[in-house]
């Protein structure tokens, strides 16, 4: 568990790892391949589906999946703030300019600003899509152990990318601890990081500069150690992930069927979807 993080909005990787390692819910017991494939289908579905009701149903499904993993809802709500900010920042102007019926209007300096129904629906759809994927993604990673992630990464990514991904995962704890320690020290000495713009720019430049210098020094030491141990680009796999069970295959089959219907409806106009 992380002792301290400097944001409540970005999920802490240590927290995710903690829940993945210590949980014992039905979702923790699911085959990691099944969860990975279902994550792909959730992403594909929210991209293909345009009906708000269906999108809401997908979101309810992902939230139920998260709850079944016995994962903390309060944390999830906090973590929603970042995707919400991204969506709202992107489409804030669209709620006024999208053609449609006026929902509310305001007159400012003889200029009328009106929120339209289509603009609001557009924003709600993007929010629901973003939250559905974030919820399922977090549920997947908070219920899948590191060893299982290593195995899936090795099997699905090119060796260089998988190695860099897994090394980054390992280095992230040390790096974020280091940054946190420096920020803690600054807090303890100055009480507050809010200073003048120039002072603050220099302050953060020093903090990140240190982080990069230490990162490069550490990379040099680790690469020598890895070479001396005969690193061949592969990571030891301590736990193999078996193929999905019959129920897993059934879940994947249902996901494929739903995606196929969604694609057919979008591009060939099936009725009644």
């Amino acid at each position: 568990m992380s002792r301290r993080t400097y944001t409540k909005h970005v999920p802490d990787v240590r927290m995710i790892t903690h829940y993945a390692d210590s949980g014992s819910s039905i979702v923790h017991g699911m085959n990691p391949w099944t969860k990975a494939v279902m994550l792909f289908f959730v992403v594909a579905l929210v991209t293909v589906v345009t009906d708000l009701i269906v999108l809401l149903a997908i979101y309810v499904f992902t939230l139920s999946f998260y709850i079944c993993g016995r994962l903390p809802i309060r944390l999830l709500v906090g973590w929603y703030s970042l995707p919400l900010v991204f969506v709202v920042t992107l489409v804030i102007m669209f709620i006024f300019t999208e053609p449609g019926d006026e929902v509310a209007s305001l007159e400012l300096w003889s200029t009328k600003i009106a929120v339209t129904d289509n603009g609001l629906i557009l924003m709600v759809k993007l929010v629901v899509r973003a939250l559905a994927v974030v919820t399922f993604s977090l549920a997947t990673f908070m219920t899948t152990r590191y060893n299982q992630v290593v195995y899936i990464a090795r099997r699905t990514m090119p060796a260089v990318i998988a190695s860099m991904f897994l090394l980054t995962y390992r280095f992230l704890f040390v790096t974020s601890d280091e940054l946190t320690s420096v920020l803690d020290t600054l807090h303890s000495r100055n009480g507050n990081l809010v200073r003048g713009i120039t002072r603050q720019t220099k302050l953060f430049a020093g903090i990140f500069g240190h982080a990069f210098i230490h990162a490069f020094e550490r990379a040099e030491r680790i690469s020598k150690a890895m070479e001396s141990r005969g690193f061949d680009g592969g990571f030891p796999i301590t736990e193999r992930v078996s193929r999905p069970s019959a129920s897993g295959i059934a879940a994947i089959s249902v996901s494929i069927a739903i995606l196929a219907v969604a694609v057919a409806n979008r591009y060939f106009g099936l009725r009644g979807w």
Binding site: V160, S163, M164, L167, T168, R170, F171, L172, V174, T175, S176, F208, A211, F212, A215, F216, R218, A219, E220, I222, S223, M226
Partner: peptide, 11 residues
């Protein structure tokens, strides 16, 4: 290069 890339990504 692999470790440098991973360290940069971590930072």
């Amino acid at each position: 290069r692999l470790t440098v890339g991973a360290m940069c990504a971590a930072v």
